[in-house]
């Protein structure tokens, strides 16, 4: 308890919350002292690590070394369907744990914290944001979304759209095929697995527009690739992509 108490307990209600429901940070087990803290404490959120290394200008893949960003070999040989992709940091450490808590433990309140983190690291990335008309989250198979109760990508997208004041488009890009989770597959199988899994049911707001796809984790880019394909087919002018972390 290092902070002056008047600051800490803004109002009686907040004090009550502390006394009735004392909680600890799910990452570092420290007592949550600030009334606006939920699930994860401030210092853990501040400790989320953004990317430090160099990256591919097109697909956003992180390189092992630092230095000037440049195109990776794959993108030089063949450009992906989306024009540009960026992720905030490597999928490891506390960022990974936060995403796991957010996605699998159902702590939806973390959306704000994660969106803030995303905007802190990528908010000024003009290649991503300049001229974006709409934000579209990567969809889940409807049954899976029922089971989980929410779509982590759309929670995040909604929060980003609100903070960036860009229109959010939901329910037009849908997943029509039930596929085994990507995490269980090898890189080569991932493409095959998702073939034709996404469809656009309604192209208003997509046709002739520049859209930003949002997902939580980027591994080989297959999901983004397939989604972009579906969007381009539906007449999108340009597809860009944003993910929180990259494996």
């Amino acid at each position: 308890m290092r902070f002056p108490l008047q600051k800490k307990f803004g109002s009686f209600l907040k004090l009550a919350e502390l006394v009735f429901f004392p909680s600890v940070c799910k990452l570092c087990s420290r007592l949550l002292e600030f009334p606006d803290e939920r699930i994860i404490c401030r210092s853990c959120l501040q400790g989320l690590k953004p990317r430090r290394t160099s990256f591919c200008l097109c697909c956003g893949k992180f390189f092992d070394d630092s230095g000037e960003p440049h195109f990776c070999r794959k993108c030089v040989l063949q450009r992906p369907v989306f024009s540009v992709h960026r992720s905030c940091g490597p999928y490891s450490g506390s960022l990974k744990n936060t995403i796991i808590l957010f996605k699998y433990r159902g702590y939806r309140v973390l959306d704000k914290a994660l969106a803030t983190f995303v905007l802190k690291t990528l908010g000024r990335e003009e290649s991503l944001w300049w001229g974006v008309d709409n934000i579209i989250p990567v969809p889940l198979f409807p049954e899976k979304q029922k089971k989980r109760g929410f779509n982590q990508a759309s929670e995040l997208a909604r929060e980003l759209a609100r903070q960036k004041d860009i229109e959010l488009i939901e329910g037009q890009l849908i997943k029509v095929k039930r596929t085994p989770p990507q995490t269980s597959l090898e890189a080569s199988e991932r493409r095959k697995n998702l073939k034709g899994a996404f469809e656009v049911v309604h192209d208003q707001g997509i046709k002739g527009k520049t859209v930003l796809l949002v997902d939580d984790v980027y591994t080989t880019g297959s999901t983004l690739q397939e989604c972009s394909l579906a969007l381009i087919k539906a007449g999108a002018l340009e597809v860009r992509a944003l993910t929180i972390a990259q494996a």
Binding site: F20, F21, S23, V24, I39, Y107, V109
Partner: peptide, 21 residues
């Protein structure tokens, strides 16, 4: 009730504390 409210406002629910409440 304390348990449910705790869930609603995303706080931990310590059983000993709830019992005491």
């Amino acid at each position: 009730l304390a348990f449910l409210i705790g869930k609603l406002i995303w706080r931990n629910v310590n059983l000993l504390n709830t019992l005491a409440i």
